[in-house]
């Protein structure tokens, strides 16, 4: 009955506004939608546009004349020969970088999976006190700056790195494999993304009913059978998720190959960085390479998800 207008305060306006569905939707969706459009959609669209433009060789300015040359040059005019039987293919620097990145990322992912699974399994079976200690030891490297972890491997590798120094001290001469290069990068990436794999696997193993496994063992099933028939199918979503979290960032890695490659291993990240701000700065070729990589990742993910049931992924 009291005159509502007299009580009209900012707060009341706010309350009334928020009670209307349309307003509340606008308030909640609006800001992030603007952010996403301005800082994600627009830049990606712009990059796509630039990838079809060319660059003034003097000023580095963008020249808006449509061309597909930037893409054409990604795949044409290669020199590195690959032969598959009678087929000889000459790969360009870009193709080589893509192949190399995918190969390195695959190895790192497999290593992460093989290394992390037993630890995740142990973690899921520990009692609370031990669990806290071990998870602390796992999470600490996880939260430690990525750069610090990559740097730690720079100290380990190299002709006079810690590994070779220790080997030298016990009389085994410097081992070539412990110099900077592909192996160092694989180890660095495995170390960097290992905790992601571990935690994702742990999350799915933690939901596992271990009494089922006990029962299976009482019935005489061997460990291998149990792992094969029970643990792996039940944790498949975790495995796929973990692999994704290791694989995708490994493909686009920059710091690790830069620090551990001694200039000899050109992964995609380095190639794009060089084109974007390096000696031969060219926004158009950098954009084309970036877009091609984005497309390749989307295709790879699409293929992965074709073979893994999505509902299963979500069904932990």
């Amino acid at each position: 009955m009291a005159a509502p207008d007299r009580d009209e305060t900012l707060r009341a306006t706010l309350v009334r506004g928020l009670s209307r569905r349309r307003t509340s939707l606008g308030v909640t969706v609006g800001p992030s939608a603007i952010w996403i459009v301005l800082l994600l959609v627009a830049p990606l669209a712009f990059m796509t546009a630039v990838s079809f433009a060319s660059i003034d060789s003097v000023t580095f300015d963008i020249v808006w004349e449509p061309t597909v040359n930037n893409y054409y040059n990604l795949v044409a005019g290669g020199t590195s020969e690959y032969s598959l039987g009678p087929l000889v293919y000459k790969a360009t620097a870009f193709e080589k970088a893509v192949l190399l990145s995918y190969a390195i990322a695959t190895v790192a992912t497999v290593l992460c999976l093989v290394f992390a699974f037993p630890l995740a399994y142990v973690l899921a079976r520990l009692d609370d006190r031990m669990f806290k200690i071990v998870i602390y030891l796992v999470l600490l490297p996880f939260f430690t700056m990525y750069l610090v972890r990559a740097y730690s491997w720079r100290l380990m590798f190299g002709q006079s790195g810690v590994l070779n120094q220790v080997l030298g001290a016990v009389g085994v001469g410097p081992v070539g494999a412990f110099e900077f290069g592909i192996l160092a990068i694989i180890v660095g990436l495995t170390h960097a993304y290992f905790p992601y794999m571990l935690i994702t696997l742990y999350a799915s193993l933690d939901g596992l009913d271990f009494s089922l496994i006990e029962a299976a063992r009482d019935l005489g099933a061997s460990r291998v059978d149990i792992v094969k028939d029970h643990i792996i199918p039940l944790t498949l979503p975790g495995i796929v998720g973990g692999c994704l979290f290791v694989f995708v960032p490994s493909v686009g890695a920059f710091i690790t190959p830069q620090i551990l490659g001694q200039g000899k291993v050109q992964m995609i990240g380095i190639l794009i960085e060089q084109r974007a701000i390096g000696e031969a700065t060219n926004a158009a070729t950098a954009s084309a390479a970036s877009m091609a990589v984005v497309v390749s990742i989307v295709v790879a993910m699409f293929l992965v998800f074709r073979y893994v049931n999505l509902d299963e992924l979500g069904g932990v």
Binding site: P237, G238, V240, G241, M301, G314, G315, V316
Partner: peptide, 16 residues
């Protein structure tokens, strides 16, 4: 790409 977030979301719910 939306697939991933589904995965992560659900994993998270379960651990929570």
């Amino acid at each position: 790409m939306s697939h991933c977030d589904e995965a992560t979301n659900d994993i998270e719910v379960s651990t929570n």
